[in-house]
């Protein structure tokens, strides 16, 4: 009986893990999707930048980030750079992240830049 209960519990946990309701922390999403270009420190100096024609934005700069509204940040993460007349090098992440996760990332960016 105990084993059966445990199996059901594991099943429920796994089901939760695969449902859309599951939400990854902004820190982990930033690490998985954003580090590659914006860098481990968020300063725009990621491992990919050497041959880039446009440098990624420095998320730690209040000056560079202060002019962007939360709505713009949400839009650029979800739809990519072109959606706010910026570089095609910033891809749309709308198929990888839920709206809730993108909203959490916007909050996380505000912490990094200490602005807004």
């Amino acid at each position: 009986m105990k084993n059966k209960c445990f199996s059901w519990l594991m099943f429920a946990l796994l089901a939760m893990g695969s449902s859309a309701a599951w939400s990854t922390s902004a820190e982990d999403n930033y690490k998985n999707f954003c580090w590659q270009c914006h860098g481990m420190a968020g300063n725009g100096m990621g491992v990919n930048v050497q041959d880039m024609s446009v440098q990624p934005r420095d998320h730690t700069s209040a000056k560079a980030m202060g002019g962007r509204s939360d709505a713009d940040l949400f839009k650029v993460i979800k739809q990519g750079g072109l959606a706010i007349d910026k570089s095609v090098l910033m891809p749309p992440w709308g198929d990888s992240l839920s709206d809730e996760e993108i909203r959490d990332l916007v909050k996380y960016l505000r912490k990094l830049c200490k602005c807004g």
Partner: peptide, 11 residues
């Protein structure tokens, strides 16, 4: 992300 480190100019 498991195989990078901060560098002088970039990761």
């Amino acid at each position: 992300m498991q195989h990078i480190k901060p560098g002088k100019k970039r990761d």
